[in-house]
Lab assay of single mutants.
Amino acid sequence: MPVRRGHVAPQNTFLDTIIRKFEGQSRKFIIANARVENCAVIYCNDGFCELCGYSRAEVMQRPCTCDFLHGPRTQRRAAAQIAQALLGAEERKVEIAFYRKDGSCFLCLVDVVPVKNEDGAVIMFILNFEVVMEKDMVGSPAHDTNHRGPPTSWLAPGRAKTFRLKLPALLALTARESSVRSGGAGGAGAPGAVVVDVDLTPAAPSSESLALDEVTAMDNHVAGLGPAEERRALVGPGSPPRSAPGQLPSPRAHSLNPDASGSSCSLARTRSRESCASVRRASSADDIEAMRAGVLPPPPRHASTGAMHPLRSGLLNSTSDSDLVRYRTISKIPQITLNFVDLKGDPFLASPTSDREIIAPKIKERTHNVTEKVTQVLSLGADVLPEYKLQAPRIHRWTILHYSPFKAVWDWLILLLVIYTAVFTPYSAAFLLKETEEGPPATECGYACQPLAVVDLIVDIMFIVDILINFRTTYVNANEEVVSHPGRIAVHYFKGWFLIDMVAAIPFDLLI
Protein backbone atom coordinates (compact mmCIF):
# COMPACT_ATOMS: atom_id res chain seq x y z
CA MET A 1 0.00 0.00 0.00
CA PRO A 2 1.52 3.34 -1.00
CA VAL A 3 2.53 5.79 1.66
CA ARG A 4 4.09 8.45 -0.56
CA ARG A 5 4.54 11.88 0.83
CA GLY A 6 6.25 14.89 -0.70
CA HIS A 7 5.27 17.87 1.33
CA VAL A 8 7.71 20.18 -0.49
CA ALA A 9 4.95 21.17 -2.90
CA PRO A 10 3.89 23.63 -4.13
CA GLN A 11 7.54 23.92 -5.09
CA ASN A 12 9.46 26.75 -6.65
CA THR A 13 12.12 25.88 -9.21
CA PHE A 14 13.12 29.48 -9.91
CA LEU A 15 16.27 29.33 -7.80
CA ASP A 16 17.29 26.02 -9.39
CA THR A 17 16.72 27.52 -12.83
CA ILE A 18 18.99 30.47 -12.06
CA ILE A 19 21.76 28.19 -10.79
CA ARG A 20 21.48 25.84 -13.76
CA LYS A 21 21.53 28.66 -16.33
CA PHE A 22 24.44 30.49 -14.70
CA GLU A 23 26.47 27.29 -14.38
CA GLY A 24 26.00 26.58 -18.08
CA GLN A 25 27.58 29.92 -19.00
CA SER A 26 30.72 29.46 -16.86
CA ARG A 27 29.94 32.43 -14.65
CA LYS A 28 31.25 33.26 -11.22
CA PHE A 29 28.39 34.29 -8.99
CA ILE A 30 26.88 34.14 -5.53
CA ILE A 31 23.26 34.34 -4.37
CA ALA A 32 22.40 36.24 -1.19
CA ASN A 33 19.26 36.36 0.90
CA ALA A 34 18.01 39.93 1.18
CA ARG A 35 15.67 39.09 4.07
CA VAL A 36 18.40 38.30 6.60
CA GLU A 37 20.98 40.49 8.28
CA ASN A 38 23.95 41.57 6.13
CA CYS A 39 22.43 39.74 3.13
CA ALA A 40 24.10 36.43 3.91
CA VAL A 41 25.33 34.25 1.05
CA ILE A 42 23.06 31.24 0.51
CA TYR A 43 24.81 29.85 -2.59
CA CYS A 44 28.15 30.22 -4.37
CA ASN A 45 29.15 28.24 -7.42
CA ASP A 46 32.45 26.52 -8.13
CA GLY A 47 33.60 29.34 -10.41
CA PHE A 48 33.48 31.85 -7.57
CA CYS A 49 35.34 29.46 -5.26
CA GLU A 50 38.08 29.05 -7.87
CA LEU A 51 38.24 32.81 -8.37
CA CYS A 52 38.69 33.79 -4.72
CA GLY A 53 40.41 30.62 -3.48
CA TYR A 54 37.94 30.01 -0.65
CA SER A 55 35.89 26.87 -0.23
CA ARG A 56 32.11 26.88 -0.29
CA ALA A 57 31.93 26.26 3.44
CA GLU A 58 34.08 29.35 4.09
CA VAL A 59 31.90 31.58 1.91
CA MET A 60 28.43 30.44 2.99
CA GLN A 61 26.52 32.65 5.46
CA ARG A 62 29.04 35.48 5.05
CA PRO A 63 27.92 38.98 4.01
CA CYS A 64 27.56 39.27 0.26
CA THR A 65 29.57 42.50 0.34
CA CYS A 66 32.58 40.13 0.28
CA ASP A 67 34.48 42.07 2.90
CA PHE A 68 36.69 39.01 3.37
CA LEU A 69 38.11 39.77 -0.11
CA HIS A 70 39.09 43.34 0.76
CA GLY A 71 42.70 44.45 0.98
CA PRO A 72 44.99 47.50 0.83
CA ARG A 73 44.00 48.38 -2.75
CA THR A 74 40.27 47.95 -2.22
CA GLN A 75 38.64 51.33 -2.69
CA ARG A 76 36.32 52.43 0.09
CA ARG A 77 34.09 54.18 -2.40
CA ALA A 78 33.64 50.97 -4.39
CA ALA A 79 32.78 49.01 -1.26
CA ALA A 80 30.29 51.71 -0.30
CA GLN A 81 28.69 51.50 -3.74
CA ILE A 82 28.19 47.75 -3.37
CA ALA A 83 26.65 48.25 0.06
CA GLN A 84 24.40 50.97 -1.33
CA ALA A 85 23.30 48.70 -4.19
CA LEU A 86 22.27 46.06 -1.66
CA LEU A 87 20.03 48.63 0.02
CA GLY A 88 18.30 49.58 -3.22
CA ALA A 89 16.23 47.75 -5.79
CA GLU A 90 18.08 48.50 -9.04
CA GLU A 91 20.82 46.70 -10.91
CA ARG A 92 24.28 48.22 -10.52
CA LYS A 93 27.81 47.51 -11.72
CA VAL A 94 30.88 48.38 -9.66
CA GLU A 95 34.58 47.91 -10.36
CA ILE A 96 36.51 46.99 -7.24
CA ALA A 97 39.88 45.47 -6.36
CA PHE A 98 39.61 42.15 -4.53
CA TYR A 99 42.21 39.86 -2.96
CA ARG A 100 42.28 36.09 -3.18
CA LYS A 101 42.99 33.82 -0.27
CA ASP A 102 46.64 33.58 -1.32
CA GLY A 103 46.96 37.40 -1.28
CA SER A 104 46.95 38.05 -5.04
CA CYS A 105 45.02 41.12 -6.17
CA PHE A 106 42.67 41.37 -9.14
CA LEU A 107 40.31 44.02 -10.49
CA CYS A 108 36.77 42.69 -10.66
CA LEU A 109 33.52 43.98 -12.17
CA VAL A 110 30.71 43.16 -9.74
CA ASP A 111 27.17 43.13 -11.15
CA VAL A 112 24.55 43.38 -8.37
CA VAL A 113 21.18 42.10 -9.61
CA PRO A 114 18.11 42.17 -7.32
CA VAL A 115 15.32 39.58 -7.58
CA LYS A 116 11.85 40.62 -6.44
CA ASN A 117 8.77 38.69 -5.41
CA GLU A 118 5.19 39.23 -6.56
CA ASP A 119 4.81 42.17 -4.16
CA GLY A 120 7.81 44.02 -5.61
CA ALA A 121 10.00 43.46 -2.55
CA VAL A 122 13.62 42.40 -3.02
CA ILE A 123 14.16 38.92 -1.61
CA MET A 124 17.44 37.87 -3.23
CA PHE A 125 20.56 39.37 -4.74
CA ILE A 126 22.65 37.78 -7.47
CA LEU A 127 26.24 39.06 -7.58
CA ASN A 128 28.11 38.20 -10.77
CA PHE A 129 31.91 38.60 -10.81
CA GLU A 130 34.00 39.23 -13.93
CA VAL A 131 37.78 39.59 -13.75
CA VAL A 132 38.97 42.76 -15.51
CA MET A 133 42.68 42.85 -14.61
CA GLU A 134 45.12 40.76 -12.66
CA LYS A 135 47.44 42.04 -9.95
CA ASP A 136 50.21 43.14 -12.32
CA MET A 137 47.83 45.43 -14.22
CA VAL A 138 45.89 46.91 -11.30
CA GLY A 139 46.55 50.63 -10.90
CA SER A 140 47.08 52.72 -7.84
CA PRO A 141 44.46 52.46 -5.10
CA ALA A 142 44.06 56.22 -5.17
CA HIS A 143 42.73 56.01 -8.72
CA ASP A 144 38.95 55.78 -8.58
CA THR A 145 37.48 53.76 -11.43
CA ASN A 146 33.96 53.26 -10.17
CA HIS A 147 32.55 56.57 -11.34
CA ARG A 148 32.80 55.40 -14.92
CA GLY A 149 30.52 52.97 -16.65
CA PRO A 150 31.64 49.71 -18.27
CA PRO A 151 33.36 49.94 -21.68
CA THR A 152 31.05 49.81 -24.64
CA SER A 153 30.85 46.57 -26.59
CA TRP A 154 31.09 48.21 -30.02
CA LEU A 155 34.58 49.63 -29.44
CA ALA A 156 37.72 47.56 -29.80
CA PRO A 157 39.61 47.01 -26.54
CA GLY A 158 42.64 48.89 -27.82
CA ARG A 159 40.63 51.89 -28.98
CA ALA A 160 38.45 52.39 -25.93
CA LYS A 161 40.69 55.16 -24.59
CA THR A 162 41.20 56.89 -27.96
CA PHE A 163 37.55 57.87 -28.42
CA ARG A 164 37.49 61.67 -28.53
CA LEU A 165 34.69 64.05 -29.31
CA LYS A 166 36.00 67.23 -30.93
CA LEU A 167 34.54 70.40 -29.48
CA PRO A 168 34.84 72.38 -32.76
CA ALA A 169 32.16 70.05 -34.16
CA LEU A 170 29.80 71.30 -31.46
CA LEU A 171 30.87 74.92 -31.83
CA ALA A 172 30.25 74.94 -35.58
CA LEU A 173 26.67 73.65 -35.50
CA THR A 174 25.24 76.61 -37.36
CA ALA A 175 27.97 76.38 -40.00
CA ARG A 176 27.13 72.75 -40.67
CA GLU A 177 23.37 73.38 -41.00
CA SER A 178 23.56 74.35 -44.65
CA SER A 179 25.54 71.23 -45.50
CA VAL A 180 22.95 69.03 -43.79
CA ARG A 181 20.08 70.62 -45.67
CA SER A 182 21.91 70.31 -48.98
CA GLY A 183 22.10 66.54 -48.45
CA GLY A 184 18.31 66.31 -48.82
CA ALA A 185 16.93 62.86 -49.46
CA GLY A 186 20.31 61.59 -50.45
CA GLY A 187 21.69 62.05 -46.95
CA ALA A 188 21.02 59.97 -43.93
CA GLY A 189 19.76 62.84 -41.80
CA ALA A 190 16.34 64.40 -41.58
CA PRO A 191 15.74 68.11 -42.29
CA GLY A 192 16.97 70.28 -39.49
CA ALA A 193 19.16 67.57 -38.00
CA VAL A 194 22.68 68.22 -36.81
CA VAL A 195 25.49 65.91 -37.85
CA VAL A 196 28.30 65.49 -35.34
CA ASP A 197 31.47 63.86 -36.63
CA VAL A 198 33.46 61.91 -34.10
CA ASP A 199 37.15 61.21 -34.62
CA LEU A 200 38.13 57.64 -33.76
CA THR A 201 41.70 57.84 -35.01
CA PRO A 202 44.30 57.21 -32.30
CA ALA A 203 45.85 60.52 -31.30
CA ALA A 204 47.55 62.04 -28.35
CA PRO A 205 45.20 63.69 -25.86
CA SER A 206 44.88 67.38 -26.62
CA SER A 207 43.20 70.30 -24.94
CA GLU A 208 40.51 70.39 -27.64
CA SER A 209 39.35 66.82 -27.09
CA LEU A 210 36.98 65.48 -24.50
CA ALA A 211 36.86 61.87 -23.36
CA LEU A 212 33.72 59.80 -23.91
CA ASP A 213 33.19 59.25 -20.21
CA GLU A 214 33.21 63.02 -19.69
CA VAL A 215 30.49 63.40 -22.33
CA THR A 216 28.43 60.83 -20.44
CA ALA A 217 28.79 62.88 -17.27
CA MET A 218 27.49 66.02 -19.00
CA ASP A 219 23.88 64.99 -18.43
CA ASN A 220 24.36 65.44 -14.70
CA HIS A 221 25.14 69.17 -15.17
CA VAL A 222 22.12 70.04 -17.31
CA ALA A 223 19.96 70.55 -14.23
CA GLY A 224 22.32 73.24 -12.94
CA LEU A 225 21.99 75.35 -16.10
CA GLY A 226 19.20 77.89 -15.91
CA PRO A 227 16.84 78.53 -18.85
CA ALA A 228 17.95 82.15 -19.19
CA GLU A 229 21.59 81.17 -19.23
CA GLU A 230 20.92 78.47 -21.82
CA ARG A 231 19.19 81.00 -24.04
CA ARG A 232 22.10 83.41 -23.78
CA ALA A 233 24.54 80.57 -24.46
CA LEU A 234 22.76 79.61 -27.67
CA VAL A 235 22.34 83.16 -28.99
CA GLY A 236 25.99 83.43 -30.00
CA PRO A 237 28.26 86.44 -30.56
CA GLY A 238 25.67 88.45 -32.50
CA SER A 239 23.66 89.20 -29.37
CA PRO A 240 25.91 89.48 -26.36
CA PRO A 241 24.31 88.59 -23.04
CA ARG A 242 23.01 91.44 -20.97
CA SER A 243 24.17 91.57 -17.43
CA ALA A 244 22.62 93.53 -14.62
CA PRO A 245 24.58 96.40 -13.04
CA GLY A 246 27.18 95.04 -10.73
CA GLN A 247 26.80 91.51 -12.10
CA LEU A 248 29.43 89.66 -14.08
CA PRO A 249 28.54 87.97 -17.38
CA SER A 250 27.65 84.32 -17.15
CA PRO A 251 30.60 82.00 -17.80
CA ARG A 252 28.19 79.50 -19.35
CA ALA A 253 27.32 81.96 -22.10
CA HIS A 254 30.98 82.72 -22.64
CA SER A 255 31.79 79.03 -23.10
CA LEU A 256 30.01 78.86 -26.47
CA ASN A 257 31.32 82.16 -27.82
CA PRO A 258 33.28 81.32 -31.01
CA ASP A 259 35.45 84.42 -30.64
CA ALA A 260 36.45 83.52 -27.14
CA SER A 261 37.04 79.88 -27.99
CA GLY A 262 39.09 80.70 -31.04
CA SER A 263 41.46 82.95 -29.14
CA SER A 264 42.69 80.12 -26.96
CA CYS A 265 43.41 76.51 -27.86
CA SER A 266 42.26 75.02 -24.57
CA LEU A 267 38.90 75.16 -22.82
CA ALA A 268 38.15 74.44 -19.21
CA ARG A 269 36.46 71.12 -18.52
CA THR A 270 33.56 72.82 -16.77
CA ARG A 271 32.91 75.09 -19.73
CA SER A 272 33.05 72.15 -22.12
CA ARG A 273 30.43 70.22 -20.19
CA GLU A 274 28.12 73.20 -19.87
CA SER A 275 28.42 74.12 -23.53
CA CYS A 276 27.54 70.61 -24.66
CA ALA A 277 24.64 70.50 -22.22
CA SER A 278 23.31 73.78 -23.63
CA VAL A 279 23.49 72.54 -27.21
CA ARG A 280 21.65 69.33 -26.33
CA ARG A 281 18.65 71.34 -25.14
CA ALA A 282 18.00 72.55 -28.70
CA SER A 283 16.12 70.16 -30.97
CA SER A 284 17.94 71.20 -34.16
CA ALA A 285 19.90 74.00 -35.79
CA ASP A 286 16.60 75.69 -36.71
CA ASP A 287 15.89 76.18 -33.02
CA ILE A 288 19.29 77.83 -32.57
CA GLU A 289 18.52 80.32 -35.36
CA ALA A 290 15.07 80.92 -33.87
CA MET A 291 16.60 81.67 -30.48
CA ARG A 292 18.85 84.26 -32.08
CA ALA A 293 15.84 85.89 -33.73
CA GLY A 294 13.97 85.88 -30.42
CA VAL A 295 11.13 83.60 -31.53
CA LEU A 296 11.03 79.84 -30.94
CA PRO A 297 8.52 78.10 -33.26
CA PRO A 298 6.81 74.88 -32.18
CA PRO A 299 8.66 71.70 -33.13
CA PRO A 300 7.75 70.46 -36.62
CA ARG A 301 5.92 67.17 -37.02
CA HIS A 302 8.30 65.07 -39.04
CA ALA A 303 10.01 61.76 -38.67
CA SER A 304 13.08 63.17 -36.97
CA THR A 305 11.12 64.59 -34.05
CA GLY A 306 9.19 61.40 -33.53
CA ALA A 307 12.25 59.22 -33.40
CA MET A 308 12.45 59.47 -29.66
CA HIS A 309 8.81 58.47 -29.08
CA PRO A 310 9.45 54.74 -28.81
CA LEU A 311 12.41 55.56 -26.59
CA ARG A 312 10.12 57.23 -24.08
CA SER A 313 7.98 54.12 -23.73
CA GLY A 314 11.10 51.98 -23.48
CA LEU A 315 12.52 54.14 -20.72
CA LEU A 316 9.27 53.97 -18.78
CA ASN A 317 9.25 50.17 -18.99
CA SER A 318 12.95 49.65 -18.40
CA THR A 319 13.87 47.54 -15.39
CA SER A 320 17.34 48.83 -14.56
CA ASP A 321 19.79 51.61 -15.18
CA SER A 322 21.62 49.42 -17.69
CA ASP A 323 19.00 50.47 -20.27
CA LEU A 324 20.01 54.10 -19.81
CA VAL A 325 23.68 53.20 -20.15
CA ARG A 326 22.91 51.32 -23.37
CA TYR A 327 20.97 54.29 -24.72
CA ARG A 328 23.79 56.70 -23.94
CA THR A 329 26.28 54.39 -25.60
CA ILE A 330 24.29 53.92 -28.80
CA SER A 331 23.44 57.61 -28.99
CA LYS A 332 27.17 58.36 -29.26
CA ILE A 333 27.92 55.97 -32.17
CA PRO A 334 30.04 57.91 -34.71
CA GLN A 335 29.03 58.99 -38.22
CA ILE A 336 25.27 58.99 -37.62
CA THR A 337 22.73 61.77 -37.64
CA LEU A 338 21.77 62.93 -34.17
CA ASN A 339 18.33 64.48 -33.79
CA PHE A 340 18.35 66.59 -30.65
CA VAL A 341 14.73 66.09 -29.63
CA ASP A 342 13.13 66.94 -26.34
CA LEU A 343 11.72 63.91 -24.53
CA LYS A 344 8.51 65.86 -23.84
CA GLY A 345 7.30 65.64 -27.40
CA ASP A 346 3.83 65.44 -28.85
CA PRO A 347 2.09 62.32 -27.50
CA PHE A 348 -0.01 62.06 -30.65
CA LEU A 349 2.97 61.44 -32.90
CA ALA A 350 2.96 58.02 -34.49
CA SER A 351 5.82 55.78 -33.48
CA PRO A 352 8.01 55.23 -36.55
CA THR A 353 9.47 51.85 -37.27
CA SER A 354 13.11 51.51 -36.34
CA ASP A 355 15.57 48.87 -37.49
CA ARG A 356 17.64 49.33 -34.35
CA GLU A 357 16.11 48.51 -30.98
CA ILE A 358 17.74 50.76 -28.41
CA ILE A 359 15.83 49.78 -25.29
CA ALA A 360 14.76 46.24 -24.46
CA PRO A 361 11.08 45.50 -25.30
CA LYS A 362 8.38 45.88 -22.73
CA ILE A 363 8.46 43.08 -20.24
CA LYS A 364 5.17 41.37 -19.64
CA GLU A 365 3.41 41.28 -16.31
CA ARG A 366 4.78 37.89 -15.37
CA THR A 367 8.37 39.14 -15.51
CA HIS A 368 7.99 42.72 -14.32
CA ASN A 369 9.74 41.82 -11.06
CA VAL A 370 12.75 40.20 -12.73
CA THR A 371 15.59 42.50 -13.72
CA GLU A 372 17.02 42.66 -17.21
CA LYS A 373 20.27 40.94 -16.21
CA VAL A 374 18.44 37.86 -14.93
CA THR A 375 16.22 37.73 -18.01
CA GLN A 376 19.25 38.03 -20.29
CA VAL A 377 21.20 35.30 -18.51
CA LEU A 378 18.31 32.87 -18.27
CA SER A 379 17.40 33.41 -21.95
CA LEU A 380 13.78 32.66 -21.13
CA GLY A 381 10.64 34.25 -22.48
CA ALA A 382 7.83 35.82 -20.53
CA ASP A 383 5.78 32.62 -20.76
CA VAL A 384 8.53 30.48 -19.22
CA LEU A 385 10.16 32.66 -16.62
CA PRO A 386 7.97 32.74 -13.49
CA GLU A 387 7.95 35.16 -10.62
CA TYR A 388 9.69 34.16 -7.45
CA LYS A 389 6.69 33.01 -5.42
CA LEU A 390 4.87 29.86 -4.41
CA GLN A 391 2.84 28.76 -7.39
CA ALA A 392 0.17 26.08 -7.31
CA PRO A 393 0.97 23.46 -9.98
CA ARG A 394 -1.43 23.08 -12.86
CA ILE A 395 -3.19 19.76 -12.44
CA HIS A 396 -5.73 17.92 -14.55
CA ARG A 397 -9.33 17.55 -13.59
CA TRP A 398 -10.24 14.85 -11.06
CA THR A 399 -6.63 14.65 -9.91
CA ILE A 400 -5.97 14.43 -6.18
CA LEU A 401 -2.99 16.24 -4.71
CA HIS A 402 -0.86 13.96 -2.57
CA TYR A 403 -0.49 16.69 0.08
CA SER A 404 -4.21 17.57 0.24
CA PRO A 405 -6.18 17.08 3.49
CA PHE A 406 -8.43 14.49 1.83
CA LYS A 407 -5.45 12.34 0.87
CA ALA A 408 -4.02 12.62 4.39
CA VAL A 409 -7.28 11.44 6.00
CA TRP A 410 -7.63 8.67 3.42
CA ASP A 411 -4.11 7.39 4.12
CA TRP A 412 -4.83 7.22 7.86
CA LEU A 413 -8.02 5.27 7.16
CA ILE A 414 -6.19 2.80 4.91
CA LEU A 415 -3.52 2.43 7.59
CA LEU A 416 -6.16 1.42 10.16
CA LEU A 417 -7.64 -1.09 7.73
CA VAL A 418 -4.20 -2.57 7.11
CA ILE A 419 -3.69 -2.97 10.87
CA TYR A 420 -7.12 -4.65 11.14
CA THR A 421 -6.26 -7.02 8.30
CA ALA A 422 -2.89 -7.87 9.82
CA VAL A 423 -4.52 -8.77 13.17
CA PHE A 424 -7.85 -10.39 12.31
CA THR A 425 -6.87 -12.37 9.23
CA PRO A 426 -4.50 -14.69 11.16
CA TYR A 427 -7.07 -14.89 13.98
CA SER A 428 -9.85 -15.91 11.58
CA ALA A 429 -7.61 -18.47 9.88
CA ALA A 430 -6.52 -20.05 13.19
CA PHE A 431 -9.71 -20.08 15.26
CA LEU A 432 -12.89 -19.06 13.46
CA LEU A 433 -12.28 -21.20 10.40
CA LYS A 434 -11.80 -24.32 12.59
CA GLU A 435 -15.02 -23.63 14.55
CA THR A 436 -16.95 -23.22 11.32
CA GLU A 437 -15.79 -26.61 10.05
CA GLU A 438 -16.71 -28.43 13.31
CA GLY A 439 -20.09 -26.72 13.85
CA PRO A 440 -23.36 -27.27 11.96
CA PRO A 441 -23.73 -25.52 8.62
CA ALA A 442 -25.52 -22.17 8.87
CA THR A 443 -26.66 -21.40 5.38
CA GLU A 444 -29.97 -19.83 6.27
CA CYS A 445 -28.67 -16.83 8.26
CA GLY A 446 -26.03 -15.87 5.67
CA TYR A 447 -23.81 -12.90 6.58
CA ALA A 448 -25.82 -12.22 9.75
CA CYS A 449 -24.13 -15.15 11.44
CA GLN A 450 -20.67 -14.04 10.25
CA PRO A 451 -20.16 -10.32 11.09
CA LEU A 452 -16.41 -10.51 10.51
CA ALA A 453 -17.03 -11.65 6.96
CA VAL A 454 -18.99 -8.46 6.33
CA VAL A 455 -16.15 -6.38 7.75
CA ASP A 456 -13.63 -8.23 5.58
CA LEU A 457 -15.76 -7.54 2.52
CA ILE A 458 -15.88 -3.82 3.33
CA VAL A 459 -12.12 -3.78 3.87
CA ASP A 460 -11.53 -5.40 0.48
CA ILE A 461 -13.81 -2.86 -1.20
CA MET A 462 -11.89 -0.03 0.45
CA PHE A 463 -8.62 -1.46 -0.85
CA ILE A 464 -10.02 -1.53 -4.40
CA VAL A 465 -11.14 2.10 -4.06
CA ASP A 466 -7.65 2.96 -2.81
CA ILE A 467 -6.18 1.48 -5.98
CA LEU A 468 -8.44 3.68 -8.10
CA ILE A 469 -7.51 6.75 -6.05
CA ASN A 470 -3.80 6.02 -6.47
CA PHE A 471 -4.25 6.16 -10.24
CA ARG A 472 -5.29 9.82 -9.87
CA THR A 473 -2.94 10.95 -7.09
CA THR A 474 0.05 13.16 -7.86
CA TYR A 475 3.57 12.22 -6.85
CA VAL A 476 7.00 13.86 -6.55
CA ASN A 477 9.65 12.78 -9.05
CA ALA A 478 13.42 12.71 -8.64
CA ASN A 479 13.68 16.43 -9.47
CA GLU A 480 11.28 17.27 -6.62
CA GLU A 481 8.59 18.28 -9.09
CA VAL A 482 4.91 17.47 -8.63
CA VAL A 483 3.70 15.25 -11.49
CA SER A 484 -0.01 15.52 -12.25
CA HIS A 485 -0.22 13.97 -15.72
CA PRO A 486 -2.54 10.91 -15.59
CA GLY A 487 -0.40 8.82 -17.92
CA ARG A 488 2.79 9.41 -15.98
CA ILE A 489 0.97 8.76 -12.71
CA ALA A 490 -0.32 5.41 -14.03
CA VAL A 491 3.12 4.31 -15.23
CA HIS A 492 4.69 5.31 -11.93
CA TYR A 493 2.03 3.42 -9.96
CA PHE A 494 2.36 0.30 -12.12
CA LYS A 495 6.11 0.26 -11.47
CA GLY A 496 5.63 0.70 -7.74
CA TRP A 497 2.85 -0.35 -5.41
CA PHE A 498 0.22 -1.60 -7.86
CA LEU A 499 1.06 -5.31 -7.58
CA ILE A 500 1.19 -5.24 -3.77
CA ASP A 501 -2.09 -3.34 -3.52
CA MET A 502 -3.79 -5.72 -5.93
CA VAL A 503 -2.76 -8.78 -3.94
CA ALA A 504 -3.91 -7.12 -0.70
CA ALA A 505 -7.31 -6.28 -2.22
CA ILE A 506 -8.12 -9.86 -3.35
CA PRO A 507 -10.90 -11.29 -1.07
CA PHE A 508 -9.31 -14.65 -0.24
CA ASP A 509 -11.91 -15.33 2.48
CA LEU A 510 -14.71 -15.29 -0.06
CA LEU A 511 -12.79 -17.39 -2.55
CA ILE A 512 -12.05 -20.21 -0.09
Results as ranks from 00 to 15, higher is better:
3 V>R: 07
5 R>Q: 08
6 G>E: 13
11 Q>S: 10
12 N>A: 15
16 D>F: 10
18 I>P: 01
19 I>Y: 01
19 I>N: 01
20 R>D: 06
20 R>H: 05
22 F>Y: 14
23 E>I: 01
23 E>A: 05
27 R>Y: 09
28 K>L: 04
30 I>W: 01
32 A>H: 01
33 N>P: 01
35 R>K: 06
39 C>P: 13
39 C>G: 08
41 V>K: 01
44 C>A: 14
45 N>S: 14
46 D>T: 06
47 G>M: 06
48 F>N: 01
51 L>Q: 01
52 C>T: 14
52 C>Q: 01
54 Y>T: 01
57 A>D: 04
57 A>P: 09
62 R>N: 05
64 C>Q: 01
66 C>V: 14
67 D>R: 05
67 D>P: 14
69 L>S: 01
72 P>F: 01
72 P>W: 01
74 T>F: 01
75 Q>S: 14
76 R>Q: 15
80 A>M: 14
81 Q>K: 11
83 A>G: 07
84 Q>V: 05
90 E>P: 03
90 E>V: 13
95 E>I: 04
96 I>R: 01
104 S>A: 07
106 F>Q: 01
108 C>G: 05
109 L>R: 09
112 V>M: 06
112 V>F: 05
113 V>N: 08
113 V>M: 15
114 P>C: 01
115 V>Y: 13
116 K>S: 13
116 K>H: 14
117 N>Y: 15
125 F>V: 06
129 F>Q: 01
133 M>C: 15
134 E>S: 11
143 H>C: 15
144 D>K: 07
144 D>N: 15
151 P>H: 12
154 W>Y: 07
156 A>W: 15
156 A>P: 11
158 G>N: 15
160 A>W: 15
160 A>P: 13
161 K>V: 01
163 F>V: 06
166 K>M: 05
167 L>T: 15
174 T>L: 06
175 A>I: 01
177 E>I: 01
178 S>H: 06
181 R>D: 09
182 S>N: 07
182 S>K: 09
186 G>P: 08
189 G>H: 06
189 G>V: 05
190 A>T: 14
192 G>E: 06
194 V>R: 01
195 V>R: 06
198 V>R: 02
198 V>D: 03
199 D>L: 01
199 D>H: 01
203 A>E: 15
204 A>V: 03
204 A>K: 15
207 S>W: 15
212 L>P: 12
212 L>A: 12
216 T>G: 14
217 A>V: 07
220 N>R: 07
222 V>L: 11
223 A>P: 13
224 G>R: 14
239 S>L: 08
241 P>K: 07
242 R>H: 10
244 A>W: 12
246 G>L: 15
247 Q>E: 15
251 P>M: 08
253 A>H: 14
254 H>D: 12
254 H>L: 07
255 S>A: 07
255 S>E: 13
256 L>E: 11
259 D>N: 10
262 G>Q: 13
263 S>D: 07
263 S>E: 13
263 S>P: 11
264 S>Q: 07
266 S>Q: 07
271 R>G: 11
276 C>D: 14
277 A>S: 14
280 R>E: 10
281 R>T: 15
283 S>C: 07
286 D>F: 05
286 D>I: 14
287 D>W: 09
288 I>A: 14
299 P>M: 08
300 P>A: 11
306 G>L: 08
307 A>M: 12
308 M>T: 06
310 P>R: 07
319 T>F: 05
320 S>G: 13
323 D>Y: 05
324 L>M: 14
325 V>S: 12
327 Y>C: 15
327 Y>I: 08
331 S>L: 01
332 K>N: 08
333 I>W: 07
334 P>W: 01
335 Q>L: 04
339 N>A: 05
339 N>I: 01
340 F>Q: 15
343 L>H: 15
344 K>L: 09
348 F>P: 12
350 A>E: 07
353 T>S: 10
359 I>G: 14
359 I>A: 14
360 A>R: 11
360 A>L: 12
361 P>G: 09
362 K>F: 08
364 K>G: 14
372 E>M: 11
373 K>P: 03
376 Q>T: 04
376 Q>P: 03
381 G>T: 05
